[in-house]
Simulated assay, not measured.
Amino acid sequence: MSAVSPVVESVLGSVIASYIFYMFCIHPPVFAEKKTSAIFVNFILTRIKKSFEDHMRGVSPTLSYDSAADDFYKAFTGIAPFTNTAPLIIQVSPQMIYADWFGYFYNENTRINEEITRLMDSRLNLNTEMTFILNLINDSTWFMAVKSMTNMKNQMSPSQNPNPFVNSSQPEISLCNSMYDLKELIRSLQPAIDATGKLAERF
């Protein structure tokens, strides 16, 4: 036993020394990095969710993350997309001018897209599910349709189709439904927001 003890003591001493080195030299920087990452990710995801919530309220104060597809359809029937009545000011002087609804939607979509790009380009270690959802948001039908219509609105005829976001004969295939689908995607980010918030508080 006495012949083994020095070996055991040497091993234990090495393990303890390694543990002390980790706790005082490696552990703090790693935790600091994890906390910084969690704070940043939580900040961006929260901004995306809040930005889209404000976006919905711009269409109608009745819309929220709890709204159903029918609620979106009803809200969209109340707007006139070709008129400069959207809640976005594009000129202040010499007179205040508001954007049309195509411009409003495009501007808000761009803001969300920029936030996602900022997060994806951060080189942080994002989990697979979060990355998948963010990519789905970026490639959403709503984003693509709004961009296309914004570029083509001058070729569209308001007299023939005053509101291309709704289809009165077939409401279930109305374009506004794709905004509802986007709402559901952004809503699904909430678990990631909660998780990163807890990480930021724990470290």
Rank of each mutant, 00 (worst) to 15 (best):
T117M: 09
E33S: 08
I116P: 15
Y106H: 04
Q95I: 14
S122M: 04
I39R: 15
F102P: 02
I116D: 11
K50E: 09
K50G: 03
F40A: 11
K74V: 13
R57Y: 10
L45M: 03
I90V: 10
S122D: 05
T46E: 05
Q95H: 14
A86G: 01
I79S: 14
E114T: 13
A86Q: 00
T83N: 15
V59A: 07
Y98T: 01
E33W: 10
G78W: 06
N42E: 10
P81D: 03
G78K: 07
E33V: 08
N109T: 04
M96R: 15
I97P: 00
F52Q: 07
I48Y: 05
R118A: 14
K50C: 04
V30F: 07
L119W: 12
N107Y: 06
I48P: 03
I112R: 15
I79R: 09
P29Y: 11
P87F: 04
A86K: 00
D54F: 05
M120V: 14
R111W: 02
T117F: 09
V59H: 08
F52A: 02
I48C: 05
V30Y: 11
G58P: 00
I116C: 13
L124H: 13
Q91L: 01
I89C: 03
L63V: 06
T85I: 08
Y106S: 02
M56E: 14
P29C: 09
H55T: 05
P61Y: 06
M56H: 08
F82T: 06
P81C: 04
L88G: 00
S37K: 10
N107A: 11
K34S: 03
S51K: 04
F31M: 14
Y98A: 00
N109R: 01
S93P: 01
R123T: 13
F43C: 09
L119S: 13
F82Y: 13
T110D: 10
L124I: 08
F31L: 13
N84G: 02
A32I: 02
E115T: 12
T46P: 04
E114I: 13
G78P: 10
D71N: 12
A75T: 13
E114V: 12
V59I: 12
E115D: 15
N107P: 04
